[in-house]
Amino acid sequence: MTIASMSERNVTLPNHYILQIIEIVEHAGVSAEGWLRHLGIEPDKEEEESLVTMPWATFRRFLQDAGRFSKDKALGLMIGERLLINTHGTLGYAAMSSGTTRQIVDLLEQYMVLRTDLLTMDTAEEGDCLQVRFDDNGSLEDVQRPVTEAIVLAIRNILDFTTMGTCDIRSVTFPFDGDEKLAEAVFRCPVAYNQECAGFTLPLTSIDKPLKMANTVSYQEALKVCRQELDKLPTEHTWSARVRRLMLQNRRGFPSLEMTARRFHITPRTLHRRLIDESTSYREVLEGVRHQLAIRYLQTGRMTVQEISFALGYSDIANFRKAFKRWESVPPTEYNRHSRAD
């Protein structure tokens, strides 16, 4: 089984997002024409709603160059500040018409993939807060910071607009270094870097309060369009890919087929049938995710084989060893030495 890496992927983003980054570079006094031609990027300034697809390596270089040209390490925050609710098309309109903050978060959790799949959202109630967490769908390498900061700030902008400036985010965290003082100024709440994960917390006391701009008819119409857009996504957004992303982002154990179907608002029977139509199954997707994570954990060298077995949901370490040998033809204890020899 081949495990896809970021280098083998394409990145698809709304043209408007790309234009915002180009404007940041141009405002820094750099002519973008030759730069974009060299990268092979041709954004259309007349078609902001269109999508731009490029290889991961091109996107990574695009962000690296933008950061260098702007001479600002806070490129992600600069991008995020520009991504207001009206830059997200139908998804933004659906958020604008939502009835509560919780409904907006649920909407974004399911449909953020319409704007980017570089990160996924996951939510959980912890104590008196709703914890919103963001996970990348593969190594974002040295552009993790600008990508993550931009997306988290863009979502904060959506919540701020829909609550008419009363968004009650308690705190924001990021798993890398950053400019805490600047971040707190734009998020308008405490921000901590070098934490376990990227995310923010919302108090449960406020997320179910009715929003003044709520419009049930408009919300349902926009949601219908979002569902249609989701069905039209390319093959990398198949049902098996969506199940795989859900498994990778869930740090509290892999969801069952039933819970996975519930997250997608369909029945387990329907999800099973759709996976069968793609010549796979829930079990096969789970097997692939376990394989990918096992390799990642072994390469970091921070976990024992027993700890990895437990993290991947195996009740018996012998079953993990057997599965790993089936995947890689060597026991997990020999994997790193074997891979270096190759």
Rank of each mutant, 00 (worst) to 15 (best):
E8L: 12
W239C: 07
A4N: 10
E47P: 07
P175T: 12
V25Y: 03
A222F: 10
M259W: 01
N86L: 10
Q299T: 08
V52W: 04
V217A: 13
I41V: 07
F174K: 01
T270C: 06
Q103T: 02
S315Q: 09
Q131K: 09
T101A: 09
D316E: 12
E236H: 05
G253M: 05
L39R: 00
M303W: 10
E229F: 11
D142S: 00
V217G: 10
I22V: 10
S171Y: 07
I317M: 04
K325Y: 13
I266C: 14
E33D: 12
D122S: 14
L36W: 05
G76Q: 13
R37N: 03
N215A: 04
Q249F: 02
R340A: 14
A150L: 10
I22S: 04
Q249V: 03
Y297S: 12
L13F: 12
E46H: 04
R290D: 04
I24A: 03
T173A: 10
I158Q: 05
P146N: 00
M96A: 13
D136R: 15
R263K: 12
L77C: 03
I266Q: 04
Q306K: 12
I158E: 09
L202H: 02
Y193F: 09
G165N: 09
V132C: 04
D160K: 01
L119Y: 03
E307T: 13
I79W: 01
I41D: 00
A214W: 06
K209S: 07
E109W: 00
S256H: 01
D179N: 15
G253L: 01
R102D: 12
P43H: 13
D135I: 15
L118W: 04
H16I: 15
S50I: 06
T201G: 06
V113W: 02
I295D: 14
P190A: 00
E23K: 08
I151V: 05
G29A: 04
G313V: 08
T238C: 05
D122N: 10
E221Y: 07
H88I: 04
D168H: 04
E196P: 09
I79V: 08
L248P: 02
G80A: 00
C189N: 00
T101K: 09
S206R: 09
A66R: 06
M213I: 07
